[in-house]
Nucleic acid binder design. Structure first.
Lengths: 205, 205
DNA sequence: GGACGAAAATGAACAATGTTCAAGAAGAAT
DNA sequence: ATTCTTCTTGAACATTGTTCATTTTCGTCC
């Protein structure tokens, strides 16, 4: 066996199929929602057998979790791309970006937050860490704005703030619950953040 | 047929069974989560056939939705019992009460917000209205605190505020996501509300 | 480049679970 | 008591996640 990282035919095909399966799973969740995702649909769309999905992901949860992993990575990527110059602008940018992502990919985001494991199996640690990382992105700008506050205090504040933004967005976009138009939601969200910052003693910059 | 509202034997037994089924569904969701709820388990626990569940609720969603209806009613009952004297205290009381309910009945609350209908059937209008009603309970105290603001503006503000509280609580209690201890969460939530009220130009009273 | 063994792909069969419905049981009406 | 209506039942069905013996493909060695 050649130990060099040379891709065998097997490995190439495996990866190619894995990517295909993920792409299909991604698209099906995005278009029809997590609840409508079926192993057989995925296998058929990929032109392979049901067993192959299991070979690649262990079980169905494995596929879903991998799509969710991609979702949180895509979200984090966009959130980290928000300019860091002005901390107040950055906070607004983070909220706006989160809203934009939620508007563009509502089903993917829901799948990330609503998916429950089968039989109380533990939630994968790495996804948890990625979500926490995304949520802590408000930490840095808040530290800049509140240099005198206790570190742990600001960390919790950042988490509260992002959780609040998440709540406003996820309920606001929930088409079941009298959805607010995205543009109006965007303004309300900005207003909400300004109000909260004002409460923290920070002027809207 | 006697048109008076006299309970026939049939009707009495039906109602008795309906109550029993709901109680069982309620308890199973509360203890093991919506995902673990199975028609057969409910029927067996009630000592009746599977078909009877369908007779009473049409389909499985029907049972779940009825439990959810009870959940939102129980929540609303507790929220409306919050004292109305001091508007600032009332807002804190509403948040506290919501947190207490979420702590005591996490699976029931999750079932209410996470349940998706089969096949994109429409979400029942009445549940939607009840949830909106619960969420608008912050409206009255905010009107008192902000008498000069536009009505629609305050309504949206109330909804934002409750959505934010909901986000903080539901993510904060999510055991998957590094759950914050309820007592700490209670304090953080109070702090969050005070900060926001301060941002609105209202002193903590 | 053919033979052998390892690895992967397959899909029929199974298991779990929501749903239907013909047949029987139970209640109401006369 | 008889008849009619309604409800109850649970076997059978439909859908969907999962397993695994069989077959196919791929890598390796001569």
């Amino acid at each position: 066996m050649n130990n060099v990282q040379e891709e065998s035919l097997r490995e190439r095909k495996r990866i190619q199929r894995r990517v295909l399966l993920l792409d299909i799973g991604h698209r099906l969740i995005a278009t029809k929602g997590l609840r409508s995702l079926k192993v057989r649909d995925v296998a058929e769309a990929a032109g392979c057998s049901i067993g192959s999905v299991y070979n690649e992901f262990g079980d169905f949860d494995g596929l879903i979790l991998t799509v969710n992993r991609e979702t949180v990575q895509a979200l984090t990527k966009r959130l980290t791309a928000v300019p860091t110059g002005n901390p107040v602008h950055q906070l607004h940018g983070l909220a706006d970006t989160y809203l934009a992502f939620a508007t563009e990919h509502p089903n993917l985001l829901r799948a990330l937050f609503e998916h429950r494991m089968e039989n109380d199996r533990p939630f994968p640690e790495d996804i948890l860490l990625m979500v926490m990382e995304a949520f802590s992105l408000m930490h840095a700008p808040l530290v800049q704005l509140l240099p005198d506050r206790d570190g742990e205090d600001v960390a919790q504040l950042a988490r509260m703030m992002f959780s609040a933004v998440h709540g406003i967005i996820s309920l606001g976009l929930e088409e079941r619950m009298v959805a607010v138009p995205p543009e109006q939601l965007r303004q309300r969200l900005a207003q909400f953040i300004d109000t909260h910052l004002a409460g923290l003693g920070i002027s809207p910059g």
